[in-house]
Amino acid sequence: MAANTAAVSLTVNGKPVTAEVDPRTLLVQLLREHLRLTGTHVGCDTSQCGACVVHVNGKATKSCTVLALQLGGANVLTIEGLAAPDGPLHPMQEAFRENHGLQCGYCTPGMIMTAVDMVRRKGNDLDEHTIREELEGNICRCTGYHNIVKAIAAGARAMRGTSAAKAAE
């Protein structure tokens, strides 16, 4: 690694993490390349497609457009941290499975992280218009969105009264 590196300490999926990184390292690179959490994807790398969405301090954030060094002390939740490794799926993941809300699956981690954030901000009763507006920053090139919208509405209802959304945050 280049001589110019800096240390950053943050929490990822509930675990403290310290890494020595080149200052140019993006959050998504820290997650994928340093921590081997490859569930977070890179689609466009220009903050448009949303495949890289994770939660930073509880809010949906495009991890391709944040430097790792900006996140000293931050709390990051990725798709891997949404449900316990050996437990049932998070209700939003289950809703995507149940409603066939994916085809190739590339955009899915970002869709699910965005959907969980949408429920946090907009509540459990999401109409189709709201869901479609809120998905402005998440692009899917397979599904035509129909089943994604259905999955998010169902997942939002299923999250009612659960603490699943708060796990690891």
């Binding site: 903050s47 949303g50 809010k59 495009k62 944040v66 965005t114 954030d117 402005e136 920053g137």
Partner: peptide, 9 residues
């Protein structure tokens, strides 16, 4: 402005 994730930053 932008989309929800962009507006968080």
């Amino acid at each position: 402005i932008g989309d929800p994730a962009v507006r968080h930053m």
